[in-house]
């Protein structure tokens, strides 16, 4: 889905910045006493002048290595953290005011933290949400029925949460987060620890929610499959800065990923001379198979060279994994950054 630019954005951040101030704890009793009297303060820039806007109904992936500022950004958007400077408007609210009228229009799901209550059936948690979000009985029943059907969890609603499996629990978690019909859903690593089947279930459910309800979704994940399956747009944050913001295809184009080529011949070939060619690298020869990486624009030329080596049995050309693209991007940036 493409951003709807004629509508005002649901999230608008301008020069969003967050610095942490912390004092250094000195070791030992003497150190603790000294810290009481005189503290050494240090600041760390977690998010650095980030600007972006997200339209209603978009599904955006927030990517970046650990400690890059993803979670801090998510926490500022959901109102858990104050911003240090810059403007932030979500649904026409300043999130950190945490106005009840704002909070009831958003939801946050954290893959590592359960928000369901352990000892009681999920239905009890849902009923609690009903009162917490002031839902009418009709509205509540309709939402529960719809979500339970989409997630196929009707049979789990009256089971103690502690007795459900990890995958089932994540479904219930999503259900609890969506029962009040939020307009924006923040997801922090929603598929972490799930098996392949459960991951696929969660993804298709999220896609359905986006389509059926027009829910705006902002998702952080380490699993690139999540991003590829759900997001038409990605934002990459590294060292607190927004490094990239655009479509997934654009990312692939910008990163200029190399083509992965694998050629299989009828009999073993000598391919060492390929190494010297412009735009070719990582040549690997094992018997009749040759593997190499080629620059995008040189791909045609490389194919031509390969056909000259001998009779081909099989030729396979693929784009690099999105995961590799990301690794590449971060690597390139940090080497650039470290250069004097």
């Amino acid at each position: 889905m493409t951003p709807v630019h004629d509508l005002p954005p649901v999230i608008a951040a301008h020069d969003l910045t967050k610095t942490y101030t912390f004092h250094q704890q000195r070791a030992g009793l003497g150190g603790a006493l000294k810290s009481l009297v005189k503290r050494k303060y240090e600041t760390r820039l977690a998010v650095d002048r980030v600007t972006f806007s997200i339209g209603r109904g978009e599904v955006v992936g927030l990517l970046g290595p650990n400690g890059a500022g993803k979670t801090t950004t998510l926490k500022m958007l959901s109102g858990l953290l104050y911003t240090t400077s810059g403007d932030l408007q979500v649904l026409d609210h300043t999130p950190s005011d945490r106005k009840h009228d704002y909070l009831r229009r958003i939801a946050l799901v954290m893959g590592q933290k359960t928000m369901l209550w352990w000892d009681v059936p999920a239905m009890e948690s849902l009923l609690l949400h009903k009162d917490m979000y002031g839902l009418s009985t009709a509205e509540f029943d309709r939402n529960v029925a719809e979500l339970a059907e989409l997630l196929e969890v009707e049979h789990l609603l009256n089971v103690q949460v502690r007795k459900t499996s990890l995958g089932e629990r994540m479904k219930l978690e999503l259900m609890a987060a969506l029962v009040h019909g939020p307009e924006i859903l923040f997801l922090d690593e929603p598929t972490i620890g799930l098996d392949v089947v459960a991951k696929a279930r969660v993804r298709s459910f999220l896609a359905d929610v986006n389509k059926l309800r027009g829910t705006t979704i902002l998702i952080t994940s380490h699993d690139m499959d999540d991003i590829e399956a759900l997001c038409s747009r990605v934002m990459i944050i590294d060292h607190g800065r927004l490094q990239f913001d655009g479509g997934l295809d654009d990312l692939v184009r910008t990163a200029q990923p190399r083509k992965l080529v694998r050629a299989t011949y009828a009999s073993p070939v000598e391919a060492d001379q390929l190494n010297g060619l412009d735009g070719v690298s990582a040549v690997e020869v094992s018997g009749p198979t040759v593997k190499l990486e080629a620059d995008r624009e040189r791909a045609g030329f490389v194919m031509e060279q390969l056909t000259r080596l001998g009779p081909l049995v099989d030729l396979d050309v693929a784009d690099a994994d999105i995961e590799d693209i990301m690794r590449d991007l971060f690597l390139r940036r940090s080497t650039l950054g470290d250069a004097p």
Partner: peptide, 29 residues
């Protein structure tokens, strides 16, 4: 967009209902 609580009293009422739910849940537990 309608607001969650129309008046201050509605807000207290919502919290009271919520507390009643806490209690019911505790009994179930």
């Amino acid at each position: 967009m309608s607001t969650l609580d129309r008046t201050w009293w509605h807000k207290q009422w919502r919290h009271l209902r919520l507390w009643r739910r806490f209690f019911a849940q505790a009994v179930v537990r």
